[in-house]
Design a protein around this nucleic acid. Sequence first.
DNA 1: CATGAATGAGTTTTCATTCAT
DNA 2: AATGAATGAAAACTCATTCAT
Lengths: 200, 200, 200, 200
Amino acid sequence: MTTRDRPQRADATRNRAALLAAAEAEFAERGLDASMADIARRADVAKGTVFRHFATKEELIAAIVGGHFQALTEVARALGDAPDAGAALVEFLTMAAGGQAHHDLSFLQTVTEGDSTVAALRDELHAEVEHLVARARDAGAVRHDLTGTDVWVLICAPVHATGFVRDPGPDLWRRYLAIIVDGLRPAGAQPLPGPAPTWP
Amino acid sequence: MTTRDRPQRADATRNRAALLAAAEAEFAERGLDASMADIARRADVAKGTVFRHFATKEELIAAIVGGHFQALTEVARALGDAPDAGAALVEFLTMAAGGQAHHDLSFLQTVTEGDSTVAALRDELHAEVEHLVARARDAGAVRHDLTGTDVWVLICAPVHATGFVRDPGPDLWRRYLAIIVDGLRPAGAQPLPGPAPTWP
Amino acid sequence: MTTRDRPQRADATRNRAALLAAAEAEFAERGLDASMADIARRADVAKGTVFRHFATKEELIAAIVGGHFQALTEVARALGDAPDAGAALVEFLTMAAGGQAHHDLSFLQTVTEGDSTVAALRDELHAEVEHLVARARDAGAVRHDLTGTDVWVLICAPVHATGFVRDPGPDLWRRYLAIIVDGLRPAGAQPLPGPAPTWP
Amino acid sequence: MTTRDRPQRADATRNRAALLAAAEAEFAERGLDASMADIARRADVAKGTVFRHFATKEELIAAIVGGHFQALTEVARALGDAPDAGAALVEFLTMAAGGQAHHDLSFLQTVTEGDSTVAALRDELHAEVEHLVARARDAGAVRHDLTGTDVWVLICAPVHATGFVRDPGPDLWRRYLAIIVDGLRPAGAQPLPGPAPTWP
DNA sequence: CATGAATGAGTTTTCATTCAT
DNA sequence: AATGAATGAAAACTCATTCAT
């Protein structure tokens, strides 16, 4: 009845944050099979507390993925009207890869296919990427046949590539981002084969 | 009691092949969580038979991954003395990606970390890639700061990228291979940042 | 620290009543597995409040069962000296069944086996039933070998029977009460087999 | 492939029977909340074995309920053309109650509502009951306004009633069956109120 | 006093693996 | 050799109960 605002959110907020952090770490280490029990232990809370905050494992994953989309959307927005459109796109890709470098969680996206909240955040980010690419294309900074969706699918590539060597240094992804960025440039570009993918 | 050398190797060989095919299909569809029972059912054999051929799930995965390494090694060897070293490297990457396009099983590699047989096959393939890259580099077909390991880690990138759109056409990976290949070229290449990764 | 005798008993009383009503509804709908959380939600109070009023789920159930026993005891007492003893017994059974028709909670009794308060209320009701039956027997309105305990165990039968059809009308129990009442009559009664049950 | 007939069903058959027996005992003692783990322990098999035989708890319950329906259907069929139709109906009710006397599992029926196999077996039994009642009615052995469905809903009443005393003797149910049977007789019957329930 | 977050034992179910037939 | 039944260690999730605010 007297729900009032929400007073003692102190520990609850702390727990939620601890859970998200623990979950990211566990998923990064163990993959999709990371168990809710291990996540709870890592966050130093009881099993039941995980489910109080995230009713299902999917909901927890959705919170993680959605959070990352939101953070990247803010990055993209901040770059959306930078004077050098080509540099803005590169900066965006650098920030995106840098964020993944610690924990590559891109594989979590497959689980969130059916989640409309995540889908909305994903579409929002995609639109920003499309905008960054359009500006870079108009400025002649990237090849003319490149679409926002092309860039979208390549966002995770630099970090993902580093997963194939034993001990990737913390900055190894920068090499592969550089290669891909060079591949996006108009200079000496061979025409891209096939039609661009449609979104969604 | 070894009355004969191999009594009915026909059945056993057929079963082994059927199991590998079924396992690839199941892993491609269901990811690492594909169950041994489903694989057995798909191969139309009993669960026990799977374990007669592959003592553990890891061993089955190792067989799959090792097989793919072997197949790619043959491809690389066949291209190892082609007259156009640059084209040979591109052809190799195309064959590698084309093979994954149907069934992307690269995620299985993480499970085989500890398997020395797979490691040997992996190293063998890596050496061939190194060879292809060295020739292409010597021929001026790729940027001078590119190593075989750089190419190694990028092999899976084109197909992996296609996983981020809803309905990737069967040839979508060619777009991203084209971008990466353009990024490998010396024309207009910015120097690659950081040291190249060491192998292993 | 007992500054006053009862500060805001109004709220507490209202909550207790709301909780009992909510609990009856939940138990009727979901059976014994109705959760304390759902009961709290239905009563529009917090989970902790349920436990302030009823220290355990068993205590809550005991309160429900005891309340029903008390209500029926009053009904029986009001009929205890009616001029027509046979009609009084039928009226009692009708009132008892009518009360259950909306919410059949007889299954809750099994949980209260160990509760002495409930046992006392139960025995009180049983004594009244015994009285009603004795008077009816003395008046020749029911078979001579019928005991109060026999009637006691049959109280829930009419409503329970209706649970075996899909959509029992709200008055279907009257058919089965009529059959049982006819079975209690002396006319054409075959002697009851075995000894009557004892009441502990 | 070579599924052949089914050879070593020895232990499997034993286990299935042991599981059904254990499940009946557990459900009778603990109600619907009897746990699959306890059932396994009582049957002296591992937890997993329960699920090999009955994929879900509901399936196990359906097997129990369906089995009881089948057994009763055979009883009813055997009595379907007995010369004394009234005695046949009484005999059927006696057999039905006698079967429940040890383990009252009628509450399991509610769980099987959605199971079409059980529904078919239920309808089959209901048809037999309808037949027995029709014959008894035609023979003037039971009241003219009695339907098969009326009898159907009363089948469990005698045993259910015994649940309300502390230590019901093994034959106490016979007293309440006798009362109900007397209530079914035409002698001195008051007309049944309301319409008979429809099936299903 | 009421609230609702936290707890942790318990539930159903899955699955890699073993083993009797 | 093949089969499929049995095993038992998790996993996701629920819920009565406790307790800090």
